[in-house]
Design a binder for these strands. Sequence first.
DNA 1: TTTACTTTCAAACAACCGTTTGATACAGTG
DNA 2: CACTGTATCAAACGGTTGTTTGAAAGTAAA
Lengths: 214, 214
Amino acid sequence: MMAEAEIKTASEQTRMRLLDAAREVFSENSFQGATVREICRRADANVAAVNYHFGSKDGLLAEALNFAPLAALQKANFSASECPEIRLRMFLRDFMLMLLDEKNPSSQCRIMARELADPTPALDKIVREAIAPLHAFLGKLVREIVGEKTSEAELRRCVHSIVGQCLFYRHSHPVLQRLHPKLRFDSKEIQAIGDHIAEFSLAGIKQLDKAQRR
Amino acid sequence: MMAEAEIKTASEQTRMRLLDAAREVFSENSFQGATVREICRRADANVAAVNYHFGSKDGLLAEALNFAPLAALQKANFSASECPEIRLRMFLRDFMLMLLDEKNPSSQCRIMARELADPTPALDKIVREAIAPLHAFLGKLVREIVGEKTSEAELRRCVHSIVGQCLFYRHSHPVLQRLHPKLRFDSKEIQAIGDHIAEFSLAGIKQLDKAQRR
DNA sequence: TTTACTTTCAAACAACCGTTTGATACAGTG
DNA sequence: CACTGTATCAAACGGTTGTTTGAAAGTAAA
């Protein structure tokens, strides 16, 4: 019954190897493009292992998703005592590192970004557990910056503008590589991108605030 | 040898039916998700027709792409005599209509947006003929607004911010439907989105200009 | 009509997909 | 030891994919 947390049975080890491989492959290919055979190859497991442990390819994806890191980011940010402008800046830095840094292990966000375009049976879970909380979090943050007068529709569009800028770099990565072959997305460049999005968005948000008073 | 432009041979008619159906199916599904059989079914053609007329599924996609409407938009905008701020506003309205309006026939932009995420043999053509010119066009427009002092890197990030906001609504359409089920993307809402992106971005651009002078 | 060429079509092809099967090895318990 | 449920494995299954084939139909000039 696994007394020690470190010592896992052989079965649990292959389960974890499968989950790791799945996160890798699903973040590199689309759901249709990712194959069970490739996942099992990387996990050094038999093709039947996926169906044995997770029931199906869908089930594997659902279990591979874990948005705890994203939630932790929001929680930490929420309890920070800084002003909302600085908190937005901080969050965007961390979020972009999570989205773009290859060394960052939380490829779940990359899967999430990928699955936006064509829906998967797992999309409902992604929306419920990751996207909806993220939009709510950003909505509150923006609300702190703009006044109460701003309508819900305009607030929502601001959140969309912020998220859209962030996801662009992930979605369009293959394109950006061809447009600007010399550009490297090291952690310094990623931070610069995060800062740019923060400044750009703060100006956009405050302009809306001003237009309201006019 | 086809004297009249309107009267086409039977062969050319099926070619066009195939291209129309291909644009439909490719804009609804990913490249991997779209099947040759479905395209031929909608075009009332035999399965072999695709390979006979276009060589392969790749070739069909390549020929189905036609970015003339997008280029026309840029050209018309470029020769307008308005100030750059208003031209940006105008362009974003038209561009969002092209991206989101189901009644808009130029589904090529929808295919383009779709293909950003996972590359296809046609991606090189898309980048060359559509994305690179689009970024160059927006780059010039933004350059007219900000001064000459702004660095190329920052200018590029502004373009990315604008394009990112636009593409977000196309990419995340399935997600937005679940987040805000009541929201309908009729042409009025699309124009409001375009205007929001314009205002939001203009503030972001000008803030960058001010930060420069500081 | 005969001839030559183009276009369509049903059928089949080879490759790959997710999933299932049944045998086999292996653990832990009595 | 035997027994039992779990985990792995090679192999196969049924289905779908893009593509090819070879015959049939259509077209147009000689």
